[in-house]
Computed example of a mutant assay.
Amino acid sequence: MRLILVGPPGAGKGTQAARLVAKHNIPQLSTGDMLRAAVAAETPIGLQAKAVMDAGGLVSDEIVVGIIRDRIKEADAQNGFILDGFPRTIAQADALAEMLKDNGLDLDAVIELRVDQSKLVNRIINRAEEAKAAGLPVRKDDDPEVFKDRLSAYNRDTAVVIPYYEKAGLLTIVDGMQSIDEVSAAISDVLSKLDEKV
C-alpha cells in the first residue's frame, strides 16, 4: 500500500500517519527525516544535500526525489509506505510518478485531510497550551505566527498537488475536523475500499 497524506500544517497528518504505520507495518517517509538521515549516513545524495543546505540553499527536487528513490528500496518499504510532506509541487508529483513507474510501482491513494483553515489556528494554539500544561516543550511550528506563515506557504505552493491527484483519480477527501478516531476510521474505510478493488 503506497499512500500520500496531504493537508495543511496542523491537519493531523502526523497523528494519522503514526496510526497507519502501527496498523499496516509500513514506514512513514517524511522528507525532512529522510534528508537528515541521508546527510548523517553520508550517502552520495546525502552529501549533495548537505552541501546545498550548508550553503543556505533549498534542496532541489532532484535531490529530494533521489533520497526517496533510495529509501523506497529499503526492506521495510517493500510492502508500501506513507509519504508525508512530499510531493510539494507539480514537478515533484511528476518526478514521483516517473520514479514509481521506473520501479514497477503505483500509488494506491492520495488522502487529503480537509480542514477549516480558520479553525486550524485555534487548534494549534490549543496544542501549544496542552503541551505547556503537560510540561512538554512547545513545537516551534506551533507558534501562531510561524504557523500562519506555514499555512500561507502551503496554500501558495503545496495545495496545487490536490487538483493534480484529483485529475488522476487518486484523491479521496477526509474531513479532518472530526475527532482523531473518526478521521482514523474514515481513512480505514478508504483503504478497505482499495483492498476490495485489488
Rank of each mutant, 00 (worst) to 15 (best):
M99D: 13
G85H: 02
A134K: 03
D142F: 00
S60L: 06
K140S: 15
V64S: 10
D84Y: 07
D94H: 14
K132Y: 00
T89E: 06
I124A: 01
V160S: 15
K73W: 08
K101V: 13
E74H: 10
D84V: 08
N79R: 13
G80P: 04
M99P: 13
D106P: 12
G85R: 02
G57K: 06
V64D: 03
E129N: 13
I68M: 13
E112I: 08
A134W: 00
A97P: 15
A91P: 05
V110M: 09
T158V: 09
V110F: 11
A55F: 03
A153Q: 13
V59F: 01
P163R: 05
E130T: 06
N122F: 09
A133Q: 11
R150Q: 07
R71N: 10
V65A: 06
A134I: 00
L58E: 05
A97C: 14
D143V: 01
Q78V: 04
A131G: 00
I72R: 00
S60I: 07
L100V: 11
A97E: 15
A134H: 00
G56Q: 08
L151R: 08
I82K: 06
I67W: 05
F147K: 12
V65H: 01
L136I: 01
A75M: 06
L136H: 05
I82A: 09
T158H: 07
R156G: 12
E62A: 13
T158P: 03
D108L: 02
D102Y: 06
E98S: 15
S118N: 14
G56I: 10
I111Q: 08
A128I: 03
E129R: 10
K148S: 04
A109S: 13
V146K: 13
V161E: 06
L83H: 09
D106L: 14
Y164T: 08
S152E: 15
A131E: 00
D54I: 07
T158Y: 02
E74Y: 09
R127D: 00
E62N: 08
A131F: 00
A95F: 03
A91V: 11
M99T: 14
F147S: 03
V64H: 00
N155Y: 10
I82W: 04
T89R: 02
K101Y: 10
A153P: 12
A153R: 11
V121I: 12
Y164I: 09
R139F: 01
A128G: 06
P144G: 02
I111S: 10
A95K: 09
E145W: 02
K101Q: 15
D141Y: 06
V121Y: 07
D61S: 05
E112H: 14
F81Y: 11
R123N: 09
K119T: 14
V138A: 01
K119A: 13
M99H: 08
